[in-house]
Every structure is written in C-alpha cells, then in structure tokens.
C-alpha cells in the first residue's frame, strides 16, 4: 500500500506539472498579453514598453517558470478588469463554488444511495426499473436547460425559491439540485451493484442465520461495505461538479469561480483564466488521487498493476 501510495504521489506530481504547462501555454496562445495590457488602441512603442516592464519579451519557458513559482506562492498576477489581484479574486469567489459543489454532492448522495439500496433489495422490481429509467432520461437533459426550467417552475411560477444570485442558502437550492442531479445516476448504479454483491456474500447470510434483525444487517453490515466505493466515486464527482459549476453559475448568476472563469474568458482576462484552470485541474488531480487510494485500499489487485 505504501509503495502504491508513493508511486501515485509521483504520478500526481507529474500530472499536476503537465497540467500547469498546458494551462499556461494554452491560455498564453489565446491572445497577446501585452496588447491586452496596453489596450486596444496602443501603438507599437507602448506595446514594446509594456513587454519590457512585464518581462513579456523574455523566452516563454522563463516566463512559465516565473509564473509557476509565483503561483505556488499564491501569487497569480493581476487581473485586467478587476482591481483585486487574481489571488484575492479567486479566494473571494472559491467559497461560493465549493459550497455549491458540496451541496450538489450531498443532494446526489441523498438521492442516489437510498434508491440504489432499494433497487438492490428488489432488483428488477418496478422501483428499480423506474429509478433507472429516470436516471437514463435525466442524463439526456442539458444542465443549463434543466436549471432554467427549474428557475421558471419554482422561481417564477410557484415563487418558492429565489430566481438567481447567491445571497442566502435558499439561492443554492435550485443550482445545487441541478448540479447534484447529474451525479445521481452513477452513484445510484454503483450503490446498487455494490449492494447486490455484498448481499450475495456469505457473511451476510451468516449474519441473517445468526438471527440478527434484517435492518440491522442491512445498515451495519451490508451498506457499510457497499458504500466505500461510492465514497471514491463521490470524490471524482465532486471534481466534475467544480467544472459543471461554470455552466450552472452562469445560469443562476452566482459569483463563484465558474462565473468568474466565464466572464474572464469573454474578456480575455488571461491571468484569471490561467489561475482558475490551474486550480480546478489541481482539485481534479487531488480528488482523483483520493479516489484511487480508496479503491486501492479496497481492492489489493489494483495496487500491483
């Protein structure tokens, strides 16, 4: 296990490094930073001056190294549009996104696990079929449209929730549900198949044979074992939600980093895009790492390969 963990950490560092290279060069290619800094109507001399002041005339590799070292210290440079530094901006906006993704995850677990368990207890029953069908159908609905329709239904027609913004916890209900909905089917499926496998195990039959109460067997023995892989999946899903937040936040006008990323892409605010790309990727890498560790801890075969 230790060996596996060490190997994984090496891989994670390597992937993180590669991702940082991609984040830097991808965005750098998207526009001339000097022109953006100097403004649309700057002349050649002004642009050249800007290049000199910001060190943009140096080789890209050196600029990258500078950027990376600064980024590791938490300094992501200055935004073209906002008065705050990029670091401050991200720190300000990140909590909203994390809250959103976290509430989304809770919702998907709260729906996915119970329905997965029920489906496993009664495989091929109507409730199994219906929940699976809803899951399949739901995957076909575009997130942003689902968000808009919920907004129309609950915000405009029923007037139960606020329409947009992020001022109170009520504002999070619709976006979190929209976001959580898309992670529900995989969680439901994994819970179902995990439970089916566990319930077929000898120790569950032994527990029943010992005369333990069915509910006690279900919760104490079966669910506990079936739910660990779900934890691993949930960690990956959390990463997907951070990325999905871009669409959801712009639908509901929530001031998270997803919305910030979208605005900055439209404005070509390079430093902000780079920072968000790097941070979200690092979240992804870290969360996948956690999920790999959980899975390897569960299944020793993974550690060897």
């Amino acid at each position: 296990m230790l060996n596996f963990t060490v190997r994984r950490i090496f891989l994670v560092i390597l992937v993180a490094f590669t991702v940082s290279v991609i984040a830097f060069f991808l965005v750098r290619m998207s526009g001339d930073l000097a022109t953006a800094l100097a403004g649309e109507d700057a002349n050649a001399q002004e642009i050249a001056d800007i290049k000199k002041i910001y060190g943009l005339d140096r080789p890209l590799i050196i600029q990258y190294a500078d950027w990376l070292i600064d980024a590791l210290r938490g300094d992501f440079g200055a935004s073209l549009y906002f008065p705050e530094t990029v670091g401050e901006l991200v720190a300000m906006r990140l909590p909203t996104t994390l809250q959103l993704a976290f509430s989304g995850l809770i919702i998907s677990l709260l729906i996915g696990i119970p329905f997965g368990v029920i489906s496993a207890l009664k495989p091929d029953s109507w409730i199994d079929r219906i929940s699976m069908s809803i899951a399949v159908a739901g995957q076909a609905i575009p997130t942003f449209w689902m968000g808009l329709m919920l907004m129309v239904l609950f915000g405009l027609i029923l007037r139960l929730t606020p329409i947009s913004g992020d001022e109170s916890w009520q504002h999070f209900i619709l976006p979190a549900f929209t976001l959580g909905y898309y992670s529900t089917p995989p969680i439901m499926r994994l819970t179902r198949s995990g439970m089916l496998e566990v319930l077929a195990g000898d120790y569950i039959r032994t527990a029943y044979a010992k005369g333990l109460k069915p509910l006690r067997v279900l919760f104490k023995h079966a669910l506990r074992n079936a739910v660990i892989p779900v934890v691993a999946l949930a960690s990956v899903q959390f990463g997907h939600m951070l990325s999905g937040a871009i669409v959801i936040e712009s639908v509901f006008a929530m001031q998270g980093i997803g919305y910030l990323a979208w605005e900055s892409i439209l404005r070509n605010d390079i430093a902000v895009i780079q920072a968000i790309l790097l941070i979200v990727c690092l979240f992804y890498v870290g969360l996948t790492f956690i999920s790999d560790l959980v899975n390897a801890w569960l299944d020793p075969r993974i550690r060897v390969s």
């Binding site: 891989l11 390597l14 992937v15 993180a16 590669t18 991702v19 991609i22 991808l26 965005v27 290619m29 998207s30 526009g31 990463g239 997907h240 951070l242 990325s243 999905g244 871009i246 669409v247 990323a261 979208w262 892409i265 439209l266 070509n268 895009i273 968000i276 790309l277 979200v280 990727c281 992804y284 890498v285 996948t288």
Partner: peptide
C-alpha cells in the same frame, strides 16, 4: 496512460471554453 490521466484531470467545459475563445 499518462496522457490519458492528464487529459482526465482537465475539466472539459473549462478547457473547451478557453480554447474556443482562443
């Protein structure tokens, strides 16, 4: 496998937005 892992650690929507903007 490393290339696949790297690709999987990049959020599609964000990268696609950035590149399409480019």
């Amino acid at each position: 496998t490393f290339i696949i892992t790297t690709r999987l650690s990049m959020p599609i929507v964000l990268v696609a937005l950035a590149v399409v903007a480019l």
